[in-house]
């Protein structure tokens, strides 16, 4: 590094230490859908990410839309009118969602990315760049988030660098809907409440069985004991409230009685409805 007389500092601005991105499953669905429906000649799709920025440095990416673009060897042309129209439309529905960045399919950052990033930097300070590898290049669908930091020496800007930031892909919302529905290409019917309940219970029983098996095999000495697992199990058991059996029975019975009462009431109402229906038709004949 060339050092002149006065002190120059080589630094990254802005610092990105505390930025995390959280992706709503809808965004991934939307990107995939846009990729499947992309025009013939296009290799990738790019689009705008909408969401919100919380004060503790978590960027929530909640929505997205594709922006048509054309790409030649060294330049990228975005349809900026389209981008603005779509933004206006989205904000009519949900004014709280603002631009937080942009996405592109493909693995990692590519050449044209800096140009597009530049454009989005003018729309919003410090945008996020999300890349989704729809080609499954190395066998996994990699999803990454980047921010751009500019490397500067004193006042002089040297380069822009894309720095990866942590991405939270837990997709609670998708779990709520159920991965069983979302991960298959065809599901014949949406599970009803009781079927869902049954699945969850079976799940729970299987888990309890697993724990039993593990504990038994440890006791018999087949498996080496693991303290941390043991601690988890004892914590779980300790979290059950200690209630004397009589009080517990009362609790359960009260609950059952309440539910039974409701069932009874709703059956009575139903009977009444069919009765009223009959009476109405009789009244019509008179």
């Amino acid at each position: 590094m060339a050092t002149t007389g006065k002190q120059t500092v080589l630094q990254f601005t802005p610092s990105t230490a505390s930025l995390t991105a959280r992706v709503h499953p809808l965004v991934i669905f939307n990107i995939c859908d846009c990729y499947v429906r992309r025009p013939d000649q296009a290799d990738r799709v790019i689009g705008t990410l909408l969401g919100s920025l919380s004060p503790d440095g978590i960027v929530e990416i909640k929505n997205s839309y594709a922006v048509p673009h054309s790409e030649s060897s060294d330049q990228v042309a975005l349809d900026i009118d389209y981008h603005h129209n779509m933004l206006l439309s989205h904000q009519k529905v949900n004014p709280k969602e603002v631009i937080v960045g942009w996405y592109s399919t493909g693995f990692g950052v590519s050449g044209g990315s800096a140009l597009i990033h530049d454009f989005y930097s003018r729309e919003v300070p410090n945008p996020i760049h999300l890349t989704v590898d729809t080609g499954f290049g190395n066998g996994v669908g990699t999803i990454k988030a980047f921010v751009s930091v500019s490397l500067s020496l004193g006042d002089q800007q040297l380069a822009a660098q894309f720095q990866e930031i942590p991405l939270d892909l837990r997709l609670i919302e998708a779990e709520r809907v159920g991965f069983d529905i979302l991960k298959k290409t065809a599901v014949d019917k949406v599970p009803t409440d009781l079927e869902g309940m049954e699945a969850s219970m079976e799940h729970l029983l299987a888990l309890i069985d697993d724990v039993y098996k593990y504990v038994d095999s440890v006791v018999e000495g087949q498996v080496a004991p693991d303290n941390s697992i043991g601690r988890f199990i004892s914590e779980t058991i300790a979290s059950l409230p200690k209630i004397p059996p009589s009080a517990f029975d009362k609790l359960v019975n009260d609950g059952l009685q309440d539910q039974l009462l409701l069932l009874y009431l709703s059956s009575i109402i139903r009977t009444q409805l069919s009765l009223a229906e009959k009476l109405n038709t009789v009244a019509q004949i008179l």
Binding site: F29, C32, D188, K189
Partner: peptide, 9 residues
């Protein structure tokens, strides 16, 4: 019925 593209799946 629910369907998803192979990519999403």
């Amino acid at each position: 019925k629910v369907s998803n593209s192979a990519l999403i799946s």
